[in-house]
Simulated scan of single mutants.
Amino acid sequence: MPENEVDETDCCGNGCTNCILDNKPKPSQQALLAGKRNVILSYAKFKMLSNEMHNGDAQLRLLHFVYVASDDEENDGILDIPPGHHVMLRAELAGHAAPLLRPYSPYWTDFVAKEFKILVKLQPGGRMSDYLATLEPLQVLNFRGPIGNYVHDSSSPKSIYIIAQGVAIAPTLPLVAQVLDKEDDMSCIRHLICVKDLDHVYFRGRLLEFAQYWNYRSCLYLAHQKCSCGAVNCDELCVHLKKKLHYNETARRLRLDAMQLAGQTISSDQSGSIVIIAGTSIFQRAMREQAIIAFNLSNKNIYLL
């Protein structure tokens, strides 16, 4: 089978927004320009370099992988996983006839060193979670990709609204970076993060780095943030909550909805706006409906990671 072809066994069966059967791994334009091949287009071996806790939470794992070349392979490949795309992990588990497949979206990739990192939230009793929790450095896993349909066009400035839920903030980081790292990209970003409370805001330091750019603003929506003032109707103006925020941080103690989205409007002309939503399938559907109401957008302007 050609390396970018897929069959039904490549599907994990979890109803992914960007199913591998609908969005098969695509040839890399960067690889073609460089005259090299993208090593992950078909299932390839990646060695785990580290399996670490994140934010002191044992259920949150930062996993770091590097490509393992075969003995007879020339070192002429690269690893190209565009922002907003995911890779499929195929694991052979003892006692299971069929391999277990799960999609993961990298938040960091090294094009030349052929390395990538993912943030994983382990689910108690989950087969893949139990497997990943026990992985030790140097173990080898199989991944293929990249899978997805979002491509950023830096030649056309636009308003970009990125909505992330919980750990799904991780794959949105490279989406932001690809805009901010290019000086002539005039696109403006609103990064809206929906979490339980401040303790569940991941990569907070990275968000503060983004906040230094003129065309980036973020807002934390804290649905269950408790405040030391004890007031039932305490809001984001409370001095007790403000003390927990960093300079240039904005937070609101409520859920993100159409009204809140409308308040984040960048431009009066929303015709060219893009909305990118990362989170569970239920969250994605709900936020898509809210975005359509808030910005009067068609589905073609909304991307679900």
Rank of each mutant, 00 (worst) to 15 (best):
S228Q: 14
I193M: 12
Q264H: 09
L89A: 00
I169M: 13
L305W: 02
H54C: 08
A58I: 14
E236S: 14
V179H: 06
I160Q: 02
Y213H: 14
L138T: 08
A278Q: 02
G77V: 06
G15D: 01
R288D: 05
R102A: 02
S267R: 15
G205Q: 08
Q264Y: 00
I78V: 14
D257L: 01
P146C: 06
N299Y: 07
W214P: 07
N18Y: 05
L222R: 04
D72G: 10
I292R: 09
V112E: 14
K121Y: 04
S105Q: 04
M128L: 11
R206M: 11
K182R: 15
I78C: 12
N233Y: 10
K196G: 03
P124A: 08
P137Y: 00
L220K: 02
P157H: 06
I276K: 00
S42H: 11
L41W: 05
A133M: 08
K300A: 10
Q139M: 00
T172L: 07
L141A: 04
L208N: 13
A31S: 15
L245E: 06
K196P: 01
D197Q: 07
L41E: 09
I20Y: 04
E3D: 13
Q123H: 12
T265A: 13
F203G: 07
A262D: 08
R288A: 10
V66A: 12
L173T: 10
N51C: 08
K158G: 04
C16S: 04
R288L: 08
S70K: 14
I302S: 05
P25F: 09
L101T: 00
Y104P: 00
R102G: 02
E8Q: 10
Q123Y: 13
A258D: 05
D269P: 02
A164Y: 04
G279D: 03
N215E: 02
S159C: 12
T280Q: 08
D184H: 11
P83M: 12
W108P: 00
K300W: 08
T280V: 05
K47F: 01
S42D: 15
D57E: 11
K196H: 14
E115S: 09
P2N: 11
P124V: 09
M1W: 11
V39W: 03
N18Q: 11
A91W: 03
Y247G: 08
E74V: 10
G126A: 05
N301H: 15
G125F: 10
D71V: 14
G145F: 04
N299A: 12
V151L: 14
A113S: 15
P171K: 02
N38C: 06
E73A: 15
D235H: 10
L21W: 06
E3K: 13
S187K: 06
Q260F: 01
E5L: 13
C12S: 10
A31I: 07
G35L: 09
N75G: 04
I293D: 07
I81Y: 01
S298Q: 13
G145M: 06
D57F: 04
N301S: 15
Q29N: 13
Y221E: 08
Y150S: 01
C234H: 14
Y202G: 01
G263V: 01
S273V: 07
F111R: 14
H240V: 09
L220A: 06
L241V: 09
R190I: 05
T250N: 07
A34P: 02
E236C: 07
P83V: 12
P27W: 07
